[in-house]
Design a protein around this nucleic acid. Structure first.
Length: 329
DNA sequence: TGACCATGTAGAG
DNA sequence: TCTACCTGGTCAA
């Protein structure tokens, strides 16, 4: 269940593991058999992300020009899991998944991932796509979208996306232009700013967590019409998203709370943990405990970390919206 | 065992 | 605004 930071991380991981060599591409589940056949044996040239869209560029063997793009959108449930030799291949990215081949118990005398004897583990679950190289394998399950595109078709997809705070140029040439585009787009409409932040044509890569947290950090009422939000407030939200989401892409975790707002007094109250946010964490660095990472997301009924008012939740366009009615009014 | 849930999107009406 | 769809983890019965 990824937001944009997860997809950027995925692109990096896929490049690290697979770029520059021919891959065996299969569809163990069968639902992507045709697309897999188109890509099988070609070379992954690069992988990139724009918002929540992942693009993997493939070239014919011995060629550097991308001939076909694999477009993947994980949706709510999609995930990649990885296995192989080497230090890079220890995690799953996306919805919570056990690693490929992970077992409840390892047979005695069998060393996991023993160098020199690596065999790809059997696909686990409904694997739409498997990418296999000499020493690494990646399995994709549950994507909302998985298709092979031409360069022109990829451009069409990108043309419908708003600026992406994680891309170095924001997807608009430079970050200042990207910020301007975001501000102008939000102020063009009377649709609530809470809804617009989830619109991938307004800003690409923001999901329910970054929406709730960015609005709280700006102390902005999610139900305020976009056209009524001052440009300076929107510009500050963009800048904040750049910081938060790039940090998320670097660490694999979303942490939005400032140190002074964590810990005793405002922290987990009754009911905390009844609904854990199953954030993908690679291997946890132990930096910020999961129940202190957010201001409002999944904290409905708990006291606001800043003012103590119970955090509210409501349905907005079919998604749960979390906010502090006192701080954000 | 089965209902419910989730960081999402697309298409119909 | 609604429904369908993709999957698997969690929890109640």
């Amino acid at each position: 269940m990824p937001e944009g930071h997860t997809v950027h991380r995925l692109a990096r991981t896929l490049e690290t593991l697979f770029a520059g060599r021919p891959l065996a591409v299969t569809s163990p589940q069968g639902r992507f058999a045709h697309g897999a056949a188109l890509l099988d044996g070609s070379v992954l040239v690069r992988a990139e992300a724009w918002g929540k869209q992942l693009f993997c560029g493939f070239a014919s063997s011995g060629d550097d020009d991308v001939a076909r793009w694999l477009r993947v959108h994980l949706g709510l449930y999609g995930a990649w899991t990885f296995a192989g030799t080497g230090d890079d291949v220890v995690h799953a990215i996306g919805a919570p998944r056990r690693r490929i081949g992970e077992r409840d118990s390892v047979p005695a005398g069998v060393a996991a991932d023993a160098p020199g004897a690596w065999e790809p583990p059997a696909p686990r679950g409904a694997v739409r796509v498997r990418l296999l190289a000499d020493s690494a394998v990646a399995d994709l399950t549950g994507p909302t979208a998985c298709e092979v595109l031409t360069g022109a078709e990829k451009a069409d997809v990108e043309a419908r996306l708003g600026p992406d705070p994680i891309r170095p140029d924001g997807g608009r040439g430079d970050l200042a232009a990207a910020r301007d585009a975001f501000v102008a787009r939000v102020r063009r409409s009377r649709v609530t700013v809470g809804q617009q932040l989830m619109d991938q044509a307004v800003v690409a890569g923001v999901g329910n967590i970054y929406r709730a947290e960015a609005l709280f950090r700006a102390r902005l009422d999610p139900l305020r019409p976009g056209r009524d939000v001052p440009a300076a407030v929107l510009a500050a939200i963009w800048d904040d998203l750049v910081d938060l989401m790039r940090d998320g892409a670097a660490t694999g975790r979303i942490v939005t709370t400032r140190p002074e707002d964590r810990g005793a007094g405002t922290g987990p109250a009754p009911g905390a943990g009844r609904r854990r946010t199953r954030q993908n964490t690679d291997d946890d660095t132990g930096a910020v405990p999961a129940d202190e990472a957010f201001y409002v997301y999944h904290r409905d009924g708990l006291g606001c970390r800043v003012c103590g008012t119970p955090v509210a939740v409501a349905d907005l366009a079919g998604r749960n919206l979390f906010w502090c009615p006192a701080c954000q009014s």
